[in-house]
Design a protein around this nucleic acid. Structure first.
Lengths: 368, 368
DNA sequence: CCTAGGATTGAGACCGGACTCACATCGATG
DNA sequence: CATCGATGTGAGTCCGGTCTCAATCCTAGG
C-alpha cells in the first residue's frame, strides 16, 4: 500500500563522513571526541553532523563497548506506590549518572521474575535491581550473581546470597510495633498479608518472602520477650484479592477470642481491611486498633489518622541505584547502608477495649 | 587489581556452531528457526546451545532487524499512582506482545521530556508512548511523528498533532462535575492545580496542559450555560509543593466571598488541600464541599468519603500500548477509543452552607 | 637540508546476529 | 541414465558504531 514505510535509514557516521569529506574513522573520532583530530576536520565533521542531524545509534555503540547504559529493574508491582516511590528513587539516580531503566513487573510471580531476568540479560543491561519475589527459589538470581553481573536487591533479601541489599530491618521494627501494641494492652494481634502460601500459616514454616517472615518473627519475639504466647492463629496469609482480605478481616474480628488489633502488611491491603472493619460497625481505635506498613500520605487523612510503619522507600531506591552504579563502574562497594523503618504513631492504635480477651492471662498461663 | 573483571565474553552463535561442528550460518538457522536445516544439524546445534547455555544477544539482533522490541514510555511522574496505574496497563500489554518498556520520568519538565525522547530514540525504541508535559511546545514530538516513528499520547493531547491519543474528554466531565456543584448551590468554586505558569490565571491565557485547560473550560461552560459568571479569581495554578498548596487553599477559603467548594486537580494535591481545610477547622462537606480528580481507593476511607472523578487510567494504558503495537506492526489503526470519566458521588459534596455568598445574585447581576 | 617523532588520517577488523548467494546433494521424473 | 527442483550447507556481507594498525604529514632539532 504505502511505500514510505520502507525501513527508516537513519544517518550514520559514514554519511557524516562523506558529507565532511573525511574517512569514517576520522568522523567517528571527531564525533566521539577521542584520538587525534585536526581542528579543521573536527569542525567540518561537527558541522556535517549538525546539518544531517546525526544521532549515534546507541545499539551499535553498545555492541562493541559492551555497555548498554541501561539497568533492569524488576519489581512486584509498580501500581503499588511503595514500588512507585522506590522506582522513582532508582530512575532519578540512574538518570543523573547517565543510565536508563527498563522496568519489568512480575506480579510477585516467580516464573515471571525468572523470565524478566532472562529478557533483561538478553538485552544486555549493565546491571539489575531486583525485589526478589521469593527468597527461597533464587537459582536465577544466583546465576546472575555468579556470572558477575552487577546485582542489587531492594526491599527484600534472597536466601543467604551475598548481594548488596537495600531493605529495612523488618524484624526490628516489627518487634517495636508489636511491643507498642502489647503496651497498649493488646494480646490478640492479627497480621494480614497477601503473601501466597500452599498452606495456612504454621510456626516454623518457610515463607517465600523474607519481609513477611521477618515481620512475623519480630512479632513473635516481642510476644515471647514479654512472656506472652504468640497468637499464631491470627497470622493470616493468602489474603489475595479484596474479597478475601475482607473475609479474613471479618474472621479474625469475630468470636469471643477475637483480635483487638490488626496489622496490615501493606498499604494496598490496608484499604480493604479498614473497610471491612468499618462494615462490621467497629470503630478504630475504640473497638479495634489498626496499624499498617507503608506511610502513604492519605493515612493522615482518615479518621482517625492511621498509625503506620514508615520505610524510607525513596532513599532505598536511590541507594540501590547508587550501589549498582558503583558495581557497574567497578568501584568498591560502600559501607552497607542501614535503613530504619520508624513507627509513626497517629491515631489508629488505642488501648485494648475493656472486657475483651478477659481470659488472656489464663490462656497465657496455660500455654506458657 | 582483580583480573576477573575482564569483559565477560558470552557465548555466541559462533561458539555454538563450533561445538556442534557446523557453520555459523547453519547454527544461526537452527537457532533462529528459519531457512533449511537438517534434523541432524538442528539437534546437534540445539544440544550445543543448551550445553553452553547460549542466549542470543538481543542488541546484535536488533542491529540488523532494526527492531528492538522495546517501547519508550515518557511520563510526568510514576510516583503518582495515576501514572503508576497507566504504566501498569502499558507494561502488562507490552509484555504480552513481547515488548519491553523503558520508562523515563520527566517531572513534567519540558526540557527533560525533550532529552528523554532523544535518548529513547538513540536507543532505537520501536515506538513511544508519551504523556506530553506541554501541549504547546511540541516540536520534539512533531519531529518524532514526522519521522514516522510510532507514537501514541496518553492522558493529554499535544497541540493539534494528529497522533492517536488515549485520554478522557476532560471538558465534558468537568462540565458535569461543575454542574453537580452548581446544582448543590455552590457559586464560588475553586480549582487548584500544580500546573506551572508564568503568571496567575487569566481568562484566555494559553495553558501548557491540555488537561487543565479543558477542565477550566468545562467549568466555565457549566457556569455560563447556567447564566452565571465564572469565578476566575478562584482558579489557582502554580500550587507546586505542599506549602503552596496549603496556602492557596487557605486563601480561597478566606474572606467574605470565600469559595464554598474546592476542586483538586489530582490525587496528590488533594491530600494537602484536605489537610489545609481541616487545619482551618472547616468540615467537609458542611463548611466546604470537596471534589478531586482521580479515584484512588483511599478516597473511600476518609470521613466523609471523597467525591471524585474517576478516569479509566489502567485501560488507557492498555489502549495506548495496543495502539502503539498496532502502529509498530504496520496494522491499520483501530477506531479511536473513547474514554469516559465518571463522577463518583460519595460524601464530600454538600449543599452550599447557608449564609455564605449572600451577595452572589448581585455579583452575578453586576457581572452579567 | 635531513630526519626522528608526534600528529593526522584512512583502511579495515570486529562486536554478534541475520541473511544473501553460490555451491553441493539427493530423490524423483522422463 | 540425464535432468530438475527442493533441500542443505558454508562463505561472506551487513547493521552502525569503536578501535587497531600502518601509512602519511609536519615540524623541530641536528
Amino acid at each position: 500500500m504505502n511505500g514510505e514505510v520502507a525501513r527508516r535509514r537513519d544517518v550514520t557516521v559514514a554519511d557524516v563522513a562523506k558529507a565532511a569529506r573525511v574517512s569514517k574513522a576520522q568522523a567517528a573520532r571527531a564525533l566521539g571526541n577521542y584520538g587525534a583530530v585536526s581542528d579543521d576536520v573536527r569542525e567540518r565533521v561537527l558541522a556535517a553532523a549538525e546539518a544531517l542531524s546525526y544521532r549515534p545509534n546507541e545499539l551499535a555503540r553498545s555492541m562493541n563497548t559492551g555497555k548498554s547504559h541501561t539497568i533492569g529493574v524488576v519489581v512486584g508491582d509498580i501500581e503499588n506506590p511503595h514500588f512507585g516511590l522506590a522506582t522513582r528513587g532508582i530512575t532519578d539516580t540512574a538518570k543523573k549518572a547517565g543510565y536508563n531503566v527498563i522496568l519489568v513487573n512480575t506480579d510477585e510471580d516467580r516464573s515471571a521474575e525468572v523470565e524478566a531476568v532472562r529478557v533483561l540479560l538478553d538485552k544486555r543491561v549493565d546491571g539489575l535491581i531486583v525485589a526478589p519475589a521469593s527468597s527461597v527459589d533464587t537459582d536465577h538470581l544466583q546465576d546472575v550473581h555468579r556470572s558477575g553481573r552487577p546485582l542489587v536487591f531492594i526491599d527484600r533479601t534472597a536466601g543467604d546470597m551475598q548481594v548488596e541489599t537495600m531493605a529495612v530491618d523488618m524484624a526490628r521494627i516489627s518487634r517495636e510495633a508489636t511491643q507498642y501494641l502489647l503496651d497498649a494492652g493488646h494480646r490478640r494481634i492479627a497480621f494480614i498479608s497477601t503473601l501466597r502460601t500452599d498452606s495456612p500459616y504454621a510456626a516454623g514454616m518457610t515463607l517465600e518472602s523474607s519481609q513477611i517472615a521477618d515481620r512475623i518473627e519480630g512479632m513473635r519475639e516481642a510476644f515471647l520477650s514479654s512472656g506472652l504466647p504468640f497468637p499464631e492463629d491470627l497470622v493470616r496469609l493468602n489474603a489475595g484479592d479484596e474479597d478475601s482480605i475482607r473475609s479474613v478481616t471479618r474472621e479474625v474480628l469475630r468470636g469471643p477470642d477475637r483480635a483487638t488489633a490488626v496489622v496490615a502488611s501493606d498499604g494496598l491491603i490496608a484499604l480493604s481491611v479498614v473497610e471491612a472493619i468499618q462494615e462490621l460497625g467497629l470503630s478504630i481505635p475504640a473497638d479495634v486498633s489498626f496499624l499498617m506498613y507503608d506511610d502513604f500520605a492519605w493515612t493522615r487523612l482518615t479518621t482517625p489518622p492511621l498509625t503506620v510503619i514508615a520505610q524510607p522507600v525513596y532513599n532505598m531506591g536511590v541507594a540501590a541505584a547508587k550501589a549498582l552504579i558503583r558495581q557497574m563502574e567497578g568501584l568498591p562497594a560502600a559501607a552497607p547502608a542501614q535503613f530504619t523503618a520508624t513507627l509513626v504513631r497517629r491515631g489508629s492504635v488505642g488501648p485494648r477495649p475493656v472486657g475483651e480477651n478477659l481470659a488472656r492471662e489464663d490462656v497465657g498461663a496455660r500455654l506458657s
